[in-house]
Simulated assay, not measured.
Amino acid sequence: MLTASPELVYVDEPFNLYHHLLFQPTIFDHWFTYVLPENEQRYFKYLQTAIEAKFNLVLDANTIKTGRDRQRLLQTYLQSLKKRWTGARPLVKDPIALFSAEWLANTFNMDVVLTIRHPAAFAYSLKRANWTHDFSHFLAQPLLMRDYLHPFAAQISEYAASEKDIIDQAALLWKLIHYRVSMYQVHHSNWIFVRHEDLSRDPIAQFAKLFQQLNIAFSLDIQATIADYSRPDEAIAANPQLGFSKRDSRAIITSWKSGLSPSEIERIRHQVGDVASSFYSEQDW
């Protein structure tokens, strides 16, 4: 939605293991790679190309299978070039870069927006997509375990040793991510933290605030785009230039309540524990 503005150009998930940048295979070996000054030499040039290069093209070999996929990619690429030529700021959308956010912000002088989502909604999205996570990718990063995830070392080791139910995986993954987010909130008062539910409940007002915080003009055209892509609509249409599909934003807020069983919701709530209480109240469950 931010890249509905001509002032921003979209850079899609450079930390994703399946993406290729300028036909150069990704250099990342692990999901949620933790970049910091101690290991930045390996990653800097690749990420500088992704973020600052004049010509940027991200390819996902898993999704480019048809002529329509190629057409969508070309449209997105040409729109990206057009924006680059006009001096647009790059907007890097990458949840997988979460643990590297400090380094990215310091290295590339980034404004940081962190979107927080309800743990049950997060788990439901993973369940629907059947996305599992290999927790050995955390253990394979000793710097990440040393700096942030050591309080959860035993549980991460357990989940890495034997595959757990997707609901349990989602709960632990949410907990690890948002434990770090809670630390960011303490140490980075200049960063922007916004709940997905608040954006979805009142898109125009909440995005107006976000655009103002980022010093981006909030035109009538942008407002119309946000309204169009968040109102109830039976015809779900994709926009290759913006990189997303239309959603009934209000319905998304509580769709997990019908998509998960009561026992699944209770398991998630029990596992995320005190970390969730930093972001959500009893009423949010």
Rank of each mutant, 00 (worst) to 15 (best):
L2H: 00
V9G: 09
Y10M: 04
V11I: 15
F15I: 02
Q24V: 11
F32L: 07
L36W: 14
P37A: 03
E40P: 11
Y46E: 04
E52I: 09
E52T: 12
L59D: 07
K65L: 09
G67C: 08
R68H: 10
R70I: 15
Q71C: 09
Q71F: 13
Q71T: 15
L78C: 13
L78F: 14
L81T: 12
R84L: 06
R84W: 10
R84I: 06
T86S: 12
R89L: 01
A97L: 02
F99H: 03
S100G: 09
M110C: 08
M110N: 03
D111W: 00
V112A: 00
A120F: 00
N130V: 10
P142N: 02
P142L: 02
M145P: 11
D147P: 14
Y148I: 06
L149M: 08
P151C: 01
P151N: 01
F152S: 03
I156V: 13
E158S: 06
E158G: 05
Y159P: 06
A161N: 13
I167Q: 05
Q169E: 12
L173D: 05
K175G: 06
Q185S: 07
V186P: 06
S189T: 06
V194C: 03
R195M: 04
S200F: 02
D202H: 07
P203Y: 00
P203A: 00
A205H: 13
L210T: 05
Q213G: 09
Q223R: 05
R231P: 10
A235T: 15
Q241I: 13
S249L: 00
R250Q: 11
A251E: 07
S255G: 13
W256D: 03
W256M: 02
L260F: 08
S261T: 14
R269D: 14
Q271L: 08
V272M: 04
G273L: 01
Y280K: 00
S281Q: 12
Q283L: 03
W285F: 11
